[in-house]
Design a protein around this nucleic acid. Structure first.
Lengths: 293, 293
DNA sequence: CTTGCCGTATCAGCGACTCTTATGTTACGA
DNA sequence: TCGTAACATAAGAGTCGCTGATACGGCAAG
């Protein structure tokens, strides 16, 4: 019985689904199913009732969940104590993120990380998506933060969060007065897009196409900072992740207009396939995946 | 990180030796060495100082030991709670033991076992050594208790205890008055031995040969009960494990005479190679290996 | 200092286990 | 009753960890 099994079962319990638990752990539904069966065989009792559709947790499953939760917590504690004990220059985590994850978000994570491991070192670099993948592959970083993560032969992708996307424009723009718009309101509008080779660009294009809307792409950038500046000129709109806009919206430099049909982009954590993490990386990963604990 | 690694490290810590820890867990020294290195790599710190001969435990090692101990204890607790929860007919452990393990010993173990898992079932059968091996191989029993255990392709042997052996005779026998004897005092004495195909018989023979002593084997048996009865006739002596003689010595039917050079026979636990134990078997195994916990 | 022994490290080879892909089966809703 | 979404099952592949053999090194005795 190992920690990954406990983590997996914990996620399955919390999401009430084998498939979701599986994807939270970067494994297939099949593997998760087999793991649960192994656990049940080993413990000699059913943990879940899989013959009901919203997966039902049996008493033994609940007990095992408590055990798993507790064990994982103890393990975390142990890692932290170990780090304390090692004193100066604890482990070092290197993280690569796409630009659009945002400095403000990262600085919050950074803060919490140093609270947990005061002696460790966290290095964050911002790169274009393909560079993030490359950095992970080359082991120049331990973890990568990307959008539309995909598991490949050498890299495991874990879902992280889903950012809502909204239409954004300058306060002077005609759309700015409206609280929300239908996709068709964007027909033929001047649009500031992402570079076409970025996943987010493809996803927005696909979204617009599905809605039967065509926009006039007047500019393209590979980073959100530039797009925001261009938007302030007032002639065009764009679609951007909400968290990137907090500051500008707060002081009125830009305005968001929510879309009636929701568009989100999934962010994920990627790392190389390998059994063992350095504990600092492990702690950062746990921090990302469970900010509460 | 899994429970077997924790168990292994715990044993290494307690015995202050990688080799001994390894044999306690039925693996080779090589495997144990690699496991420790894996742990150290994973945790990013040295746990043991292996460059000193009585293996030195570093602070991180001590911390990890505490963690391991605690985790294993929690796991035990979990198994017990699970058994309680399952209520009636908990798991069932089948154990085969050689005759000479002794009923009294087993009944003590049985008692403790039912204290831990009141709902479980324990079945003990007493067999000749080769039958014990066969029963384990055929999976007719979960665990076997034998002397001079040996690990083979399909069966793992774990050391259990070492029983001191003493010379034993009737109170009327000439040797009975002496508190202890030299091996040479047995020269040409009438001797009651074990069947020659039993490991214990071979070991006693080897011992006597090494001491340069020849005895006159007047009778041979395959079980200790018969040997004790024969001894009471008063004409011969034997060499038997101390724990088998408690009752007879207490009420004066037989007398022990300790040997100046100590002779012990190792008892071991054998089980088939397989990753997962049924929890009842696991609990019984833990009980055998750590009566304290 | 040298020698011998015991314990640990290292290496190559192999077996087993677990994951993945592909496909079958079952529960629930329309 | 059918369709879909979720879980189960089967077979194959890659990886991890174990074994067995051997090399290395500390410690004690001489």
């Amino acid at each position: 019985m190992d920690l990954s099994q406990l983590q997996l079962f914990k996620d399955i319990y919390q999401t009430r689904s084998i498939s979701r638990g599986a994807s939270h752990n970067g494994v297939t539904q099949s593997a998760a199913s087999q793991t649960v069966q192994e656990l049940e065989k080993h413990l000699g009792t059913q943990l879940l009732d899989r013959s009901r559709r919203p997966l039902e947790v049996l008493p033994a499953g609940r007990l095992f969940y408590e055990f798993a939760r507790e064990s994982l917590r103890r393990h975390q504690d142990f890692l932290v104590h170990l780090e304390e004990l090692k004193g100066g220059l604890g482990g070092c985590v290197k993280v690569a993120a796409i630009y659009s994850v945002g400095i403000s978000e990262m600085s919050r994570l950074e803060e919490e990380f140093y609270r947990r491991l005061p002696t460790a070192q966290l290095e964050v670099s911002y790169l274009r998506p393909e560079k993030v993948y490359q950095a992970v592959l080359d082991e120049r970083v331990d973890l990568g933060l990307v959008s539309y993560p995909e598991t490949t032969r050498d890299v495991i992708a874990l879902p992280w969060r889903e950012e809502p996307m909204v239409v954004v424009c300058a306060p002077e723009h005609p759309l700015a007065q409206r609280g929300h718009v239908q996709p068709e309101d964007l027909e033929n509008i001047d649009f500031i897009g992402f570079d076409e080779d970025l996943p987010i660009s493809r996803d927005i294009e696909r979204f617009l196409r599905e809605q039967g809307v065509r926009v006039r792409v007047v500019m393209q950038f590979d980073n959100i900072q530039s797009m925001k500046e261009a938007l302030r000129l007032g002639h065009a709109v764009s679609i951007l992740p909400v968290p990137m806009l907090r500051e500008e919206v707060a002081d009125g430099r830009l305005q968001t207009v929510s879309l009636d049909c929701p568009l989100v982009r999934p962010l994920g954590i990627i790392h190389r396939r390998k059994k063992n993490f350095l504990r600092a990386a492990q702690v950062f990963l746990d921090l990302l995946r469970d900010p509460a604990a």
